[in-house]
Write a protein that binds this DNA or RNA. Structure first.
Lengths: 338, 338
DNA sequence: ATCTGGCAGGAAAGCGCTTACCTGATCGTT
DNA sequence: AACGATCAGGTAAGCGCTTTCCTGCCAGAT
């Protein structure tokens, strides 16, 4: 691997001059030397060692992102927003998948800290786990203490800058719609209990139902993995226990799609016999059949805002941006059959 | 940010000892000193500077991956395979999105080279562009010359290790199925012409049709973006020009899903009036309605194999692993109406 | 009591860059 | 004509770590 000294030697200049030419320093260099250096660079196919540069500059370049899983559309969308803003500012993004493992999340914070990233964005639900939360906050605080910036998406537990989708409000919207359509026998297909996203959405849903004098008994809720298969599984269990359900409210779109698949397999007409509701409005929601009624969260926007917060050294006081949820009516929901 | 010297000072030892304790060197250190160092690490929340480590070790840690777009399910799946193998070997993955811009692809090769990655995996279609290919191969060669490893997925233009999905064979499978079902009026919804994936699949399709004495006139092919919207757009154009089509063959699943969406919007019954075929078999294909008939490519497997090649210094001679395509019959296709 | 080996720990030389500071030449000033 | 200002370019000191090599100590052997 050619080094800067190699280039300098070949061009017959000092490493300092070579460096100045290569990354356009403010110091002027004669046209002639500049050309010699550039020629040497081309001939040697020289590429600067990024680690050496970062070390020398002690410059924080990249930005770290920790998500549950980029291949999950929910996070793909958020990531798209993060990317856009980061790229606009000429920042490299390092994406880390925690696969919903708190342990791994902790490790990644360390790793990113070691990489000297300028900021860390934590996306995705937090956990109901006080020990973990304390540990994580400790690590983040240590990072921030040395000038690192942190922004989170959808986590109450962190005290700094945050973008908060209105999960509770979305749950309420969902509950209101269920009541409006006259559903009484409602099954809820939920993500893991330990995720705050699950409980927030559930809380909103419960509140709205209560307002209309309806209850949501615990046995009507099934907790499963926050993905398609988890959705199918939970729906099956729900239906087996109570065949008379008229609505399935899934707490994210992936699960809702699993629910639709299961209902289709069992030849249950949607929405004539059972209505299905999702949450998030990921792109795929419009392409399933029937197209999914869901609570939209502005995912790309969330990502973009979070990155903007993370990169803007701005206010000392933590900034929290709340983003509202919307009900999107499509074909998978209808009035309760009577 | 605490440094190793800070730790050493606090523990009352030399930096050398501190370093040895922290990353478990083979050199033995007394239990007492070890404890002092670990305590200092904890107290200072010390995290080693990864750049400095890499520089000092001149150790190549991470692996670089260049894909068109991770949020595209095709690449998500491949990436999942890449991840798995890389993680198993304790390697960090750096994922770069080229967004189908050859220019950016070139830049990323440089960037990864600068990051001293141990290997670069290039996934996604190549381009019909001799200049670009030459440039890229030059850069890759320079990288390989300094000990870097390169593996590509689905690109003929590179001469080194490669995993090749059988795009042409898949196209043939598609053509045979079309003939078997008796379709005569076939529209093709294709990706950009410059992508070799597009032309490979097309070539296979053409060959199979020709074998059955059928032709595929150029005006029955529409080229558009390789995504959902491109698919919808191309399908619309095709249908407007020739209302009598009985089959739409999309060259990837995203486009096929766009086609389905458009057909639904126009109330064209699928597959009764028009059959729709996809390509890739991304997870979503089974969840659209009607479920998509498609040519399956073992995407995760492709990723895993490519990473295995990239990380195995092995053979000097380039290894090429070919992976077969399969026809998956689902509900979006049926016999041609008469 | 002296010598050798072995062994824990430290000193210091880099890894490949950047950049503050210095040098020597060139120019303009009085 | 002599002096300082100006400027291109070079010198060298780090950035934070790893690792080789060396030092000084002690146990065991003679």
């Amino acid at each position: 691997m050619a080094t800067l000294s190699d280039v300098a030697r070949r061009a017959g200049v000092s490493p300092a001059t070579a460096s100045r030419v290569i990354n356009g320093s403010s110091k002027p260099v004669t046209e002639e030397l500049r050309e010699r250096v550039l020629r040497a660079v081309a001939e040697l196919q020289y590429v600067p060692n990024a680690h050496a540069q970062l070390l020398a500059r002690s410059h924080r370049g990249a930005v770290g992102v920790i998500v549950h899983d980029v291949s999950d559309p929910y996070f793909s969308e958020i990531t798209r927003g993060l990317q856009r803003v980061a790229t606009d500012q000429g920042r490299l993004l390092m994406i880390c998948n925690s696969y919903r493992d708190p342990e791994r999340e902790l490790e990644y914070v360390e790793l990113l800290r070691g990489q000297q990233v300028a900021a860390i964005v934590l996306a995705g639900s937090g956990y109901h786990d006080a020990d973990f939360t304390r540990l994580l906050n400790g690590k983040l605080a240590a990072y921030e203490a040395t000038g690192g910036r942190v922004a989170v998406i959808g986590r109450h537990e962190h005290s700094g800058d945050a973008v908060m989708p209105d999960n509770r409000g979305g749950g309420e919207l969902l509950g209101q719609e269920l009541c409006r359509l006259g559903h009484e026998h409602i099954g809820v297909v939920a993500g893991p209990r330990v995720l705050t996203t699950t409980t927030d959405r559930l809380t909103g849903l419960r509140a709205a139902l209560a307002e209309h004098g309806r209850e949501l008994p615990e046995h009507r809720i099934r907790y499963a993995d926050f993905d398609r298969d988890g959705g199918a599984e939970a729906t099956a269990a729900l239906l087996d226990a109570e065949p008379g359900l008229t609505a399935i409210a899934a707490l994210n779109d992936s699960m809702a799609i699993g629910a639709l698949a299961l209902l289709r397999a069992r030849a249950v007409p949607v929405p004539q016999q059972v209505s299905v509701f999702g949450f998030d409005d990921m792109p795929m929601a419009r392409d399933v059949t029937p197209a999914l009624t869901t609570i939209r969260l502005p995912l790309v926007e969330m990502g973009a805002r979070a990155m903007a917060l993370a990169l803007d050294p701005g206010a000392a006081s933590p900034r929290v941006e709340s983003l509202a949820a919307d009900l999107i009516r499509r074909d998978s929901s209808g009035p309760a059959p009577r």
